Computed example of a mutant assay.
Amino acid sequence: MKLKQYLHSQLAITFFPIFLGLFFITSVIFLVKIAALTSIITLDFFELFTLFSYVIPQIIFFTMPISFFLSLVITLAKLAGEYELTVITSFGLNPIKILKIFVPVTLLLSVMLLVISVGLIPKTKFLTKQFLDKKKTEANFNIKASEFGQKFGDWLIYISEKNDKVYDEVKLFKTEDKKDQFIVSQTAVLDNDKGSLSFKLNDGKAFVIDEKEFNQIDFKSMYINDSIADSKTDIFTNSYEYWKKNIQQNTNIDDLTFFMLTSLFPIISLFLVITFGYFNPRYEKNRAVFYSLISVVLYYVLIKLIGDKILLHALYAIPIFWLAGTYLLYFKTVRKEY
């Protein structure tokens, strides 16, 4: 019992710094993507935090399996480097018995990852899409005064001043079918009708230029429309119905296999943990981290290349292949010595 507690404590000491470091780095990447939305729609701090909370399951899913696997290997390698594994082995605990100590927590982690990936991530992605669609139907676009490169639909737009939804000295430009269209207007008012944005341009001129003609139109008022609401309304009841529908329609099957196989990675890689973690510090160098990183890359390449081709068949083919291969590696190396 004390040995089990000791090994678990050593795992915790190694795991949390690695996981928190990867979690922070991945969070920054997702935050940058979320912040990029402010160039399209207006978001306050609370709304940014809401969007970030929706991607937390994805961050955990991408960081947890790698962090846990590396932590297990590093924990055993550290104990081996300090000759503690040698002492533990001398008391009759061979690598398999030590491995059994980590099986329950590893199995629990894989189950949790399955719940997060197959259960929570589809729901949070739906909530994110729903949230953004709602923002698009409520808010006006974040068009800033005296700034180039902004777009309204297919039009490039430039404004001199902005007062709420009223814009002064508006200039619009678009190239379509080898025709250049240019519009200038004294004022414009932005109207949002359930996601259908429209500019009402007042007192302006429109120019249409092609290779042969130059046309000018003077107007008192003109409307330019841009539908930003998603016309396709998705319905999400629960994750089971979501995946059942996708399997029936043969869509997003590669996502399902990727989620499930990534979730199973910690539990089906335990033979690699003792293979890389066990070494004799007197005769061998500690290459546990190097070998572990190669294994992680190899596994992810495997599930992407093969999983995307054989789809649902990968759910049994890849785990069987991976378990057989890792056990053979363990049998040829560590089992002979211990």
Rank of each mutant, 00 (worst) to 15 (best):
H8D: 00
S9I: 07
T14M: 11
F16L: 10
I18V: 13
I18L: 14
F19E: 09
F19K: 09
L20I: 14
F23P: 10
I25M: 12
L31K: 10
L31Q: 12
V32D: 11
I41W: 05
T42E: 15
F46C: 04
F46D: 14
T50V: 13
L51S: 10
P57F: 08
I59V: 13
F69D: 07
L70T: 06
A77P: 12
E82A: 12
Y83W: 08
E84F: 02
T86Y: 01
V87W: 01
T89P: 02
G92P: 00
K97Q: 00
L99R: 02
I101D: 02
V103F: 06
L107Y: 03
I116V: 12
V118C: 01
G119Y: 00
L127K: 14
T128D: 08
K129E: 13
K135T: 12
T137C: 04
F141Q: 12
G149T: 09
F152D: 04
W155A: 05
I159K: 05
N163W: 02
D164R: 12
V166R: 15
V170T: 08
K171E: 06
K174P: 08
D177I: 09
D180F: 12
F182Y: 15
S185E: 07
T187V: 03
N192F: 05
D193Q: 10
G195F: 06
G195Y: 02
S198C: 12
S198P: 10
L201W: 09
I209S: 09
D226R: 07
S227G: 02
S231W: 01
K245W: 08
N246W: 01
D254Y: 10
D255W: 06
S263C: 06
S263Q: 00
S263I: 01
L264D: 02
L264M: 07
I267Y: 00
L270Y: 00
F276K: 03
F276C: 07
G277V: 07
Y283P: 03
V289F: 15
Y291W: 12
Y299I: 03
K309W: 11
I318C: 14
W322D: 06
L323N: 02
A324D: 06
L329G: 04
Y330C: 00
V334D: 02
R335G: 05
K336V: 04
